[in-house]
């Protein structure tokens, strides 16, 4: 049985406004200059600033400087140098260095499980078969910081429609590449590798659930989950699994790596919710990277209008 898109899943206007069809070259160079200046370098940069790796490359492209709420984009340098990606290292500023040279081609993504039409996509298929849009979304880390990132990608529902989930399929399960030689953090026995994440099928069909192949108009860099990752903007960042090799339709709720590591702290839903504190800290506020003070955290990270219906009648304290 193929999935039909219901009218409630059609993109509301204000979300559409932050999802522009990306047209290479048009208007992009003009704005990239503004973005470059926003990536301001540190005080007292040294004489070797010519080969400084903190400046944004000149080929970054973005159509606007804010999200639909008027919040400024996080600088390219911050997005690509401050990452939680334990497969490389648990040090956020160390990921970019460790990930340098991580090879993402060839790369295949197997989509199967409870589907009528299982398929394996190469990364080139994923970049060309599906229309790549610029989607500016807020990313709220469960640790209490956030960014605004101009992703490139398409709705997860587009892939799911191609493989046609059967009527037994209830959840989507995602898996990151398992290769401890290339992902040295996977030698750590503290976590049950590979990284696994999941969505309920109706969550996965929501148009905001995005498969990203790039950011700032470039292919994803390894530290950001190259070459292919999930972006679920209304959930805490750890749901947005990186470097995906497998997408499986299943009938039982997948157990994610974090649910396995700390079940009392990380649940399956992980919706951004200022009312439900993490056991060890409040989630009421967050620090937007680049800002000095904190700001209030928005329910569903500000995407309530688009996604709150998915949780009608559910106790979100229970289902954290």
């Amino acid at each position: 049985m193929a999935i039909k898109i219901s009218s409630s899943e059609i993109t509301p206007e204000h979300v559409y406004l932050s999802r522009r069809k990306f047209m290479i070259g048009i208007g992009a160079l003009a704005t990239s200059a503004a973005v470059l200046s926003a990536c301001g370098n540190q005080v007292g940069s040294t004489a070797s600033s010519a080969n400084s790796n903190e400046a944004a490359p000149e080929d970054i492209k973005v159509s606007t400087n804010t999200d639909e709420l008027g919040d400024e984009l996080t600088s390219f340098s911050a997005v690509t140098s401050y990452n939680n990606f334990y497969e490389f290292t648990t040090s956020k500023e160390g990921v970019a260095g460790m990930a340098e040279g991580f090879s993402t081609s060839p790369w295949e993504v197997e989509v199967g499980g409870l589907v009528n039409n299982p398929k394996t996509f190469s990364i080139d298929d994923l970049r060309t078969k599906f229309d790549q849009e610029e989607r500016i979304y807020r990313l709220r880390c469960v640790e209490g910081w956030s960014m605004v990132i101009p992703w490139m990608g398409f709705s997860l529902s587009e892939i799911l429609e191609e493989v046609e989930p059967t009527s037994q399929a209830k959840y989507v399960r995602f898996e990151t590449l398992y290769d401890p030689d290339r992902l040295p953090g996977q030698s750590s026995r503290w976590y049950d590798w590979p990284y696994v994440e999941g969505l309920r099928l109706d969550e996965a069909m929501n148009p905001l659930a995005t498969m990203a192949t790039g950011l700032y108009g470039k292919h994803l860099l390894p530290q950001n989950g190259a070459p292919f990752r999930l972006v679920v903007p209304w959930k805490y960042g750890f749901k947005s699994i990186k470097s995906i090799v497998k997408i499986e339709l299943v009938d039982t709720m997948p157990v994610s790596l974090w649910m396995d590591a700390a079940p009392n702290e990380y649940g399956f839903y992980a919706n951004v919710n200022p009312e439900v504190p993490h056991p060890r800290w409040s989630q009421a506020t967050e620090r937007r990277i680049g800002e000095f003070g904190r700001r209030d955290t928005l329910p569903f990270n500000g995407y309530g209008e688009e996604v709150a219906y998915l949780y009608d009648g559910m106790d979100l304290r229970e289902n954290f």
């Binding site: 540190q42 911050a78 640790e143 910081w145 620090r287």
Partner: peptide, 12 residues
């Protein structure tokens, strides 16, 4: 010197 983590998330 603008070390990355201190530049990006100085409080943490």
């Amino acid at each position: 010197q603008g070390q990355t983590a201190l530049l990006i998330n100085p409080f943490q």
